[in-house]
Structure formats: C-alpha cells, structure tokens
C-alpha cells in the first residue's frame, strides 16, 4: 500500500494513460472562453485538442485560472481521509498562483487531520518537465521513501529539468505576461523564432532567437545535445500544441543524434496551451542544472 498520494495539476499535461500508469492524480485548473468556464481536463473530454487550438487560431481569447481552493480542499481531504499523506507537484510558481494557494489550503486541511502530511513542491517548470517530476515521485515512492524524503528529493533535482520550446506566435506569451524578455528582443522582424527555456526561478525566458523555420530543428538538436546528461537512461519528452507533424520531425532529428532510451510525444494541455498558443513545440530533457535567470517579465 502506497504511503502517500501523488497529485499534480492541469499544467503537467499528463495523458490519461500516463496518469493511470504512474498512479498520479491531478487538480484541475480552469479555462474560460467568453462567459463560460471549464475545468482544464487532461482527457480533453470537454473540447478536443483540435477544437481547442482551432478556437485559438480563430482568435478566440482563452483565459486561465489557478486551481480553485475547493478543488485543493476536496483532493487533499479525499486522500487524508484514506489515511494517506499527499505530495502535490505544482506548476511553476512563476507561471501560476496554484502553488501559493496549495500551501495555504494544505495548512488548514492538515489541521483537521493530525498526524497526516501534505507536502507541496514547486516544480519551477510546467508541461512534461512538471510531469517528469511527478513520475520521479512515483519511482521514489516505489523505493519505499516517505512523503518528506520524496519531496526533498524533488526539490533537489527540479532544476535539472531543461525545457527548450519554440512558439509560432509570441503574442500569446506576451499577452499573458508569461515570458521574460525585453521588448527590444521581440522587435518588428520577420522569420524570427524565439527559443524559450524555463529559467532557474521557473519563468519562461526567451533566451535567444533562431532565424528561419528550417533552422529551428537543427538548433533544438544542438541545445538538447549541449544540455542533456545520461540520455541513455531517460525518456525524451516532447509536447506540442496541435503540431504533431513538427513534433515528430523534432523527435526524429533528436533521436537520430542523441541516444535516448525512448521518447514520448504528447499534447500540451489547455492551460499551458492557452498561454503558449497553437503550434508550440516543447522539449524536456534531464540535464545540467539550469542556472540562467531572465529579467523581469
């Protein structure tokens, strides 16, 4: 019997089969279109991924909200009642207020269940970087570690999760303020593709520019090569916002040059998707610790 439950949230972009395979639950955030609010479900049972990204392509503004307090309360209580502790692996605190909210809710819920524990870990990343930490939690739990041991471990390794992403249109990131870069960086130029990393405080940081769509893949391969540590022991994770064709091309190019054990392709969920926009490709590898920090966003 597991000693603690593993909980993440909608920005982990974990597909239903991965959630099931690694016995991970998630607390949904919400997205709104006009007046309608929907829970950001990772099984795409409300809007399909294609529908969702087509809405964005048509210019429909999608806004997102953090995990609501009652959702945290019911998830936490559900496990504590069962006699389990809870490990919550959150979206980067630089991207969502969910982590901050979870700390407060955890405190009040724990007061009702003496002896039980809720640990909240700020992943300082999102999408498959966050998901990977939740999966690591599963593996570490299987080794018999308790919630504190695993939470401490995750906090010690989180900055080794490297993100390399390119977006088709920077407007989405700019609009929701979820990217760090000076306005001079963007400028009014054509054919420029920014390379976006998750920096050491968990911000999306446009670290450099790639000119010309054809140069994007070779540059991504170079970035992965430079950052990765022990690729033969890890899975290459790539998530995309309704851009499977390019994601496959990126995967094939990386796999041809870097000896990853295997690879996993997935869809960027509605919350991350709403802030990066359709067409985004995001790569996650375990590698050197991230030391870069972008300027104020």
């Amino acid at each position: 019997m597991a000693s603690f439950a593993i909980l993440t949230d909608s920005t982990s972009d974990l597909s239903p089969d991965l959630l099931e395979r690694y016995n991970i639950d998630y607390a949904p955030m919400n997205y709104t279109m006009g007046d309608a609010e929907y829970p950001a479900l990772l099984d795409w049972s409300i809007h399909s991924a294609k529908e969702f990204y087509d809405f964005m392509r048509q210019g429909i503004i999608i806004k997102t909200t953090q995990v609501p307090v009652p959702v945290f309360e019911s998830k936490f209580e559900q496990y504590l009642k069962e006699g389990l502790d809870v490990l919550y692996v959150s979206c980067s605190s630089a991207l969502s207020g969910s982590y901050a909210t979870s700390l407060n809710v955890a405190k009040s819920v724990m007061a009702k269940y003496p002896g039980r524990k809720i640990r909240c870990v700020d992943s300082l990343i999102s999408s498959f970087g966050e998901a990977n930490l939740a999966i690591v939690a599963y593996e570490e739990r299987n080794k018999g570690k308790d919630v504190d041991e695993v939470a401490d471990y995750l906090e010690s390794i989180r900055l080794t999760r490297n993100q390399f992403a390119t977006v088709e249109n920077l407007e989405y990131l700019k609009r929701c303020g979820r990217v760090s870069a000076t306005s001079a960086f963007f400028g009014n130029f054509f054919g420029i593709h920014p390379l976006i990393i998750s920096d050491k405080i968990g911000q999306n940081y446009a670290i450099r520019k790639i000119k010309g769509a054809k140069n994007v893949i070779p540059e991504l391969v170079e970035e992965v090569k430079a950052a990765v540590v022990n690729p033969e022991e890890q899975t290459l994770y790539i998530s995309h916002a309704d851009n499977a064709e390019q994601a496959i091309a990126v995967r094939d190019a990386i796999m041809a040059e870097v000896p990853f054990k295997d690879s996993h392709l997935g869809i960027i969920g509605p919350i991350v998707g709403a802030s990066v926009g359709p067409g985004t490709i995001s790569i996650y590898v375990i590698g050197k610790e991230v030391t870069v920090q972008g300027g104020a966003s």
């Binding site: 870069a181 000076t182 960086f185 400028g187 130029f189 054919g191 420029i192 520019k209 000119k211």
Partner: peptide, 25 residues
C-alpha cells in the same frame, strides 16, 4: 543591417556574443 538588427539581444553578456548573433546569419 535589418537582418543583423533582427538578431539583437542586449542581454548577451559580451559584445563578442552580441556581434556573433548579429553576424551569424
């Protein structure tokens, strides 16, 4: 000149790095 400007990134730590970006393409 336009092409060089399009690659400008003032956050680069050294002038050589900035010139490298501007001249790369």
């Amino acid at each position: 000149g336009y092409s060089a400007m399009s690659m400008v990134d003032y956050s680069l730590p050294t002038v050589d790095a900035l010139i490298h970006e501007m001249t790369h393409y």
